[in-house]
């Protein structure tokens, strides 16, 4: 990875950047590693076991941050989609940020579901139960896999951007349903501990702090991945455009040859 910046026109031999790293992403990457080390120390070491759940409570420090950041990622997708759709410039940069953010959100959500199933087996006694929270979460997960599939349907970059922006704005409306599903229906999944309206958090102080470390660590990881992924998407678009240009040039050259 070289230090070439995407936007700054460095006097390089190629007009395209040779990597997706910048000084900012490297600093961010180091901060992510440090925060993850902190999370391991607090999640597995300093934080206490729970009275009822004992050691299995430590799954919380991955389960909760990953789903919160997945929500954040989908909100970023929606905002970015709106910026593309309603912006005057119709900038494809917004579309790439939307796509990259959704991809990372889906990965984070997969982590939430996997560790959640393990946690469910340990505390509830079952991996899965078709209750309100789990069902709505699964629905949100496949919705965004659908979003990613729509992005790959083909057509021009702007066709892709327009189609997916509409879906990105609609899909985000599912998140409030997932969050309040535990209040709307009777559910095996417990209600919210931290994100509740009465502000009465029933959680041991060190556990809450470990959760906070987890949120910081996964937020940093998200931003780092988002920067790199949206830049590789820019490069992918560039390769596609180049390929099209070359194909057109080849076709024109062919036509020239045929003509006397």
């Amino acid at each position: 990875m070289t230090t070439t910046d995407l936007d700054a026109g460095t006097p390089a031999r190629t007009s395209a950047p040779r990597g997706t790293g910048t000084r900012a992403t490297r600093v961010l990457g180091i901060a992510t590693v440090v925060a993850m080390a902190w999370l391991v120390a607090f999640g597995l070491g300093f934080s206490p076991a729970d009275r009822d759940q004992e050691e299995s409570v430590r799954i919380l420090y991955v389960h909760v941050p990953t789903i919160w950041i997945a929500y954040l990622a989908f909100v970023v997708t929606a905002i970015s989609s709106g910026c593309y759709l309603f912006g005057r410039k119709k900038s494809l940069g917004f579309d790439r940020v939307a796509g990259a953010s959704a991809e990372i959100g889906v990965v984070f959500m997969a982590v939430t579901l996997i560790v959640g199933a393990l946690w469910g087996r340990l505390t509830w006694g079952v991996f899965w139960q078709w209750d309100a929270r789990l069902t709505t979460t699964a629905l949100l997960f496949v919705t965004y896999i659908g979003y990613l599939a729509v992005r790959r349907l083909g057509g021009s970059h702007h066709q892709r951007a327009k189609r997916s922006a509409v879906l990105g704005l609609l899909a985000v409306l599912e998140i409030p349903l997932v969050h309040w599903s535990v209040r709307l229906w009777r559910s095996l999944h417990q209600e919210a501990t931290v994100l509740r309206t009465d502000g009465d958090i029933s959680m041991d102080g060190l556990m809450l702090f470990s959760l906070f470390v987890g949120v910081i660590a996964f937020t940093l990881l998200y931003v780092w991945l988002l920067l790199h992924r949206s830049r590789t998407m820019f490069l992918e678009d560039l390769i596609e455009d180049r390929g099209l240009d070359q194909a057109l040039a080849a076709r024109r050259a062919e036509a020239e040859e045929v003509r006397p």
Binding site: R51, Q53, W124, Q190, S202, M207
Partner: peptide
């Protein structure tokens, strides 16, 4: 034929 343990939203250190 199926028993599931519900957990409350309260977390407390084991003592």
């Amino acid at each position: 034929d199926r028993v599931e343990v519900k957990h409350s939203e309260e977390y407390e250190a084991a003592n």
